[in-house]
């Protein structure tokens, strides 16, 4: 029979060994894992402007290439809810050590009060044209869903999107990521109507009319995810409105040029 002392000793030694091995592995690979994650996110952001990458495809670009391309052509700024540009210190104060917009963890921001959130904005310079890529997050059926929406310089026309999710059902909700035709449906749709009012884009259950600038086809069998996407767009893109308005006014008054 084993004494209590032996049992405690056995368990203690075993758990210490395990903890040592695992923490060693974790620390040793932490940096590379973080790089992998950032490249994964950058690829997703570039995926939203896939048509304007100069003939390249974000999915087939190598890791190094994605990194270099992103750093060269994309300007990133962090915004607060009033549309003010944040300095690196402010981003660090919000809890992100890197201090750049790309370090903002949307899932973490989602848990904060709406007024305290900070959001990243990526400005992609495609040569003749600039695209504004906004990041949105919302609720799917099972877990978070998020996406990057690329807007033309009029800040209303969508040129591309990329979506991802944490745990939607394959074949149903997961189609927002797996089905390449889903993100493509948003191309050419408009966030603002003719009168300049904010309307966002809705997912229409029975199928959107071809000429409807504010509606796309929904996903059959995935009502909750579709409603989530719609809500996420409606709420998430609006966060950027104050900043867009400030750019629009400076552009009009000609200060920027």
């Amino acid at each position: 029979m084993y004494t209590t002392k032996y049992i405690f000793g056995f368990v203690f030694i075993m758990t210490s060994l395990v903890a040592l091995v695992l923490s060693g592995l974790f620390m040793g690979w932490k940096d590379q894992s973080a790089i992998n994650e950032s490249i994964f996110n950058k690829r997703a952001i570039l995926g939203a402007v896939n048509d304007h990458l100069g003939g390249k495809d974000a999915q087939t670009m190598g890791d190094e290439e994605v990194n270099a391309f992103f750093d060269k052509n994309v300007k990133q700024i962090a915004l607060d809810m009033s549309g003010t540009e944040l300095k690196a210190d402010d981003v660090i104060k919000a809890g992100y050590k890197g201090g750049k917009a790309e370090h903002i963890d949307m899932a973490k921001e989602k848990k904060k009060d709406e007024a305290e959130r900070i959001i990243p904005l990526y400005i992609f310079d495609a040569g003749q044209e600039e695209f504004y890529i906004v990041t949105v997050i919302g609720n799917g059926l099972w877990d978070n869903i998020w996406g990057n929406i690329a807007l033309k310089s009029d800040m209303s026309t969508i040129v591309g999107t990329s979506f991802d999710h944490a745990g939607e059902t394959p074949g149903l909700g997961a189609e927002i990521k797996d089905n390449p035709t889903f993100p493509a449906r948003f191309k050419g749709k408009k966030i603002y109507n003719e009168a300049g009012e904010y309307v966002s884009v809705a997912l229409v259950k029975t199928g959107a009319k071809a000429d409807d600038p504010h509606g796309v086809d929904g996903i059959s069998g995935a009502t909750v995810t579709a409603v989530g996407v719609e809500e996420m767009l409606k709420r998430g893109v609006k966060y950027y409105e104050p900043y867009f308005n400030s750019i629009k006014t400076t552009k009009k008054s000609g200060v920027r040029n």
């Binding site: 695992l22 592995l25 974790f26 690979w29 590379q32 894992s33 992998n36 994650e37 490249i39 994964f40």
Partner: peptide, 10 residues
Amino acid sequence: ELTLKRFQYP
């Protein structure tokens, strides 16, 4: 899990 995160992130 750590190995995949390090070598096969997607």
